[in-house]
């Protein structure tokens, strides 16, 4: 393995979003906090969640993981699409970097950005809404695996998209609806049976539900069940991404 090459690419990817941290970290964190203010104020007494848990407290873990997912996706997808469009993707295609090293560097950078934004949201939110941590290991593992899934999906989108317009299509018609319908803002137990069933088909639901369990100790489904589901999703997405990178999909003609 080209360890120095991999570490260099990872460092470069981290540097890329850090150089524009206002856009990549602070702005998404502020947007998520606005969600928290608006939803917690507007829906506090109208949405029923788990017994004895305030809606605002319920909302915090959901919004944190939502920001982790969206930013992990945004990092790998926009980095790849931008470098393809401007042509500087050539700098990583010419060197002796294998498809595995490319995959790991892009995915880990996406995980770091996702978790950096999530941490920012969590720290700021808990200043106003004290949120308990029931099981740190669970919330950490869910943050890790879920951001890996979205980092990987971001690579798939970045490889597929030939312009930012196509990337926006992926983001607005796949990532955003799946995130919003995953139980970030409500417990799926409050939904009619049919919509509960549909929610169970959404992989994002398991990421949100398992992550929330780490904070609150309660969840719609068993956190172990969610963890298995998320790990399977991670392996599946990693497999697809690795296959695309190995083939040089839209990279090597």
């Amino acid at each position: 393995m080209n360890i120095i090459g991999f570490k260099t690419l990872l460092k470069k990817e981290l540097l890329r979003f850090w150089r524009v941290a206002f856009q990549t970290i602070f702005a998404p964190a502020v947007t998520t906090l606005l969600y928290l203010v608006v939803f917690s104020q507007a829906l506090d007494s109208r949405v029923s969640v788990f017994n004895n848990i305030d809606y605002a407290v319920f909302l915090v873990p959901g919004l944190v993981i939502m920001s982790v997912l969206q930013n992990a996706f945004a990092n790998s997808s926009s980095s790849l699409t931008q470098s393809k469009i401007t042509g500087h993707i050539i700098f990583i295609l010419l060197p002796p970097l294998s498809y595995i090293e490319l995959f790991l560097a892009y995915t880990i950078a996406a995980m770091v950005r996702g978790m950096a934004v999530g941490l920012g949201v969590l720290i700021t939110a808990t200043l106003f809404i004290p949120t308990p941590i029931h099981n740190f290991a669970f919330l950490f593992v869910f943050a890790l695996t879920s951001s890996a899934v979205l980092g990987s999906v971001g690579i798939i989108a970045g490889l597929w998209a030939e312009k930012f317009d196509q990337l926006a299509l992926f983001q607005n018609f796949i990532i955003m609806p799946l995130t919003f319908l995953s139980g970030v803002f409500y417990s799926i137990q409050s939904l009619p049976d049919f919509w509960q069933l549909i929610s169970h088909l959404n992989p994002f639901f398991y990421m949100v539900d398992g992550f929330r369990y780490g904070f609150l100790g309660v969840s719609d489904v068993s956190p172990w069940y969610s963890l298995i589901f998320v790990i399977i999703a991670m392996l599946l997405c990693a497999g697809i991404t690795l296959a695309m990178l190995k083939r040089g999909y839209k990279l090597r003609h």
């Binding site: 080209n2 460092k11 700098f91």
Partner: peptide, 23 residues
């Protein structure tokens, strides 16, 4: 083609490129 990474300085761009090759 005249391509460049817009996030990097000249020295960073060259050092990073060397790093990709294991240097």
């Amino acid at each position: 083609e005249l391509v460049f990474d817009p996030y990097l300085t000249v020295r960073e761009a060259i050092r990073i490129q060397a790093g990709y090759y294991g240097v």
